[in-house]
């Protein structure tokens, strides 16, 4: 292994130490309606926002949005629509024909329409990607202005795996024509309650 020789070369070739910058986050402040901005961005990235007053009508709303969905995974107790149970032991290959997945998102980001989903909430890492359609359910008071706030908010978690999801899977690799649904979820609905 070249570990030692690489480190030696770096040490010899690096410039004099430059200190870490003092980062003043107040320069990124914006006085805006967070929900409005989040909505604007989630639509910009091809997702859909559904605002609810509580979770009592969640299942009803989902059934209206996805009437065809048969194989459904629900990763939250507030939704009883799940027809396929999953656990940490589930082989992700068995999830390839899942129609719809419902997952709790802990935080949302107004500036880019992203939702942070932790491994605990998605249960199986492949799930939010392999499912045909995805629903992320986020409390309204968990919408933050920007990414700096999110990394602050998630700093105390157990670090295994987590992902920011902003909109459905997409590509523009054929003549720059945007096509939604490349490899991951073909549609994304974020429910704010």
């Amino acid at each position: 292994m070249s570990r030692e020789s690489i480190l030696k070369a770096v040490k010899a070739n690096k410039p004099e130490t430059l200190s870490l910058p003092d980062i003043d986050l107040s320069v990124f402040d914006e006085d805006i309606n967070l929900i409005e901005r989040f909505k604007e961005n989630i639509e910009f990235v091809g997702g859909r926002l559904l605002e609810l007053d509580g979770l009592a009508t969640l299942d009803e709303e989902i059934k209206t949005l996805y009437p065809e969905a048969k194989k459904i995974v629900s990763c939250m107790k507030e939704s009883a629509l799940g027809t396929v149970p999953v656990s940490k032991e589930t082989d992700p290959h068995t999830l390839e024909d899942i129609d719809l997945t419902i997952i709790k998102g802990n935080f949302a980001v107004a500036e880019n329409g992203a939702v942070w989903v932790s491994e605990d909430d998605m249960v199986v890492r492949a799930l939010p990607f392999i499912t045909n359609d995805l629903i992320l359910v986020v409390p309204k008071n968990a919408v933050n202005l920007h990414m700096h706030q999110i990394f602050d908010a998630i700093s105390e978690r157990e670090r295994t795996f987590g992902t920011f999801i902003s909109g459905p899977s997409k590509t523009a690799d054929i003549e720059q024509c945007l096509v939604v649904g490349a490899h991951g979820a073909i549609s994304l609905t974020v429910v704010l309650f």
Partner: peptide
């Protein structure tokens, strides 16, 4: 010109 990529996945373990 997207505000963020669709997926930004953070692998730790």
């Amino acid at each position: 010109g997207q505000p963020i990529t669709t997926y930004s996945s953070y692998f730790n373990k």
